[in-house]
Computed example of a mutant assay.
Amino acid sequence: MKKNFLIATFVVAIAEYISLLLSNYSIVISSAIVCILAGLLINHFQISNFENINNILTKNFLKIGVALIGIKISFFEFYNYASISFFIIVLNFVLIFILIKVLNSFFDSNKGMINLIGIGSAVCGITAIMAASSVMNNKKNDITCAVAVITLIGTLSVFFSPFFANLIFEQEQIKAGILLGATIHDTSQVTAAGTIFQNIYGDAQSFNSTISTKLLRNSFLIILIPLLAFYCSSQEQKNKIKFFNLLPPFIIFFILLAVFRSIVDATIEVSMLSNWEKIVSFVSTVSKYLILFALFGLGSSISINDLKGFGFKPFLVGFCISVVLIVSTTIYLKLI
């Protein structure tokens, strides 16, 4: 068991190093997808057997990592960012979940995967997929495929969306930033796209609006995950009087941590702000690495042959959702 934990730790560290190194050259490779691919290859070539720790990685580490995400969500920031972007984010949520219903009627056998792709597209990419899967009990193949789709489409968006945003909103670069923040999936991808846009077109305001819009999208996780937990609960659990009986303990901790973050943000003295930001950054980093461990465990528990059956359908689903996001956001921003 110790040997396998050491291998997993080495893979996660290398994946993060590769991601950071390539980002210096404006190459966006998510450490999450590197962890999954490493796990898949190790399992495929039978380099090592991770069955003895897979349950710990994909359940325990994942749940702790999701719970700690709460420290990244501040209602205070949510309020500040809501003025322009709130309506379009809510609208996109509604459109995506309507689209999910439609797509599920066409691809009945892949409902779990489609739901995860929709959730990842609507909120914050891989983080949302992993958080949602922790309460929805999805198949491992569905999770892996959803992560791959979100990563691929988000990566392509990094390189094409900045130019599209400038083409549509050449004289309104704050709106261009909102378009990037509202339509690209993962936070790291949004940051990369915002940086590319700022470097090419030289507008700091666009970057601020990009990040602010993305943070607002991320904040919706605190609404989505408890709702999913409630929806996926058994009827027997729903019949219980106490609301908190419907939520897993790690989701309750997730909510409490977000509330705590919000209270501290609103009341902390300026002299203590730097220390508080360091604490938030540290907890966020721990959360990130725990989820990377979970993704490696996910990859090492799946056979590459099992993934071949998905074909092009998942990527078609992801593409359709992205197109809806871009069109609805563009129309909304043109009208205001």
Rank of each mutant, 00 (worst) to 15 (best):
S74C: 01
V327N: 12
L6G: 00
T144S: 08
D265W: 03
V149L: 06
F296Q: 08
I331Q: 04
A266L: 07
F75G: 14
L156N: 08
N49R: 05
S303A: 01
T58Q: 04
A229F: 00
V286E: 05
I153M: 12
A176P: 00
F160N: 12
I168A: 08
S83K: 07
L224Q: 02
S212G: 14
V259W: 12
G181N: 05
L37V: 15
K214S: 00
S300R: 06
F76K: 14
A67K: 02
Y81L: 01
I153T: 07
L68P: 03
L227P: 01
V323G: 08
L156E: 02
S105N: 15
N104M: 10
N4K: 13
Y332D: 07
I114H: 10
L247P: 01
D306Q: 13
I71A: 04
V270H: 13
N4T: 09
T183W: 07
L216A: 06
I36M: 11
I200N: 10
T210D: 05
C145N: 12
A13K: 02
I143M: 08
G318D: 00
L20N: 14
L256R: 07
N92T: 09
L224N: 06
L167H: 00
L40R: 08
I304L: 12
I7M: 11
F315S: 02
A148L: 03
F106L: 12
N166R: 12
E77Q: 15
F207V: 09
V280M: 02
S287K: 01
L224P: 05
E170D: 14
E277G: 12
S30C: 07
K111H: 00
T187R: 03
S262P: 00
R217K: 14
A13T: 11
L99T: 07
F243Y: 11
G70T: 02
F106C: 10
D186L: 08
N239H: 13
I7D: 07
I196Q: 10
S233R: 06
Q189F: 00
S281P: 09
I321M: 14
P314C: 03
A82E: 01
K139V: 03
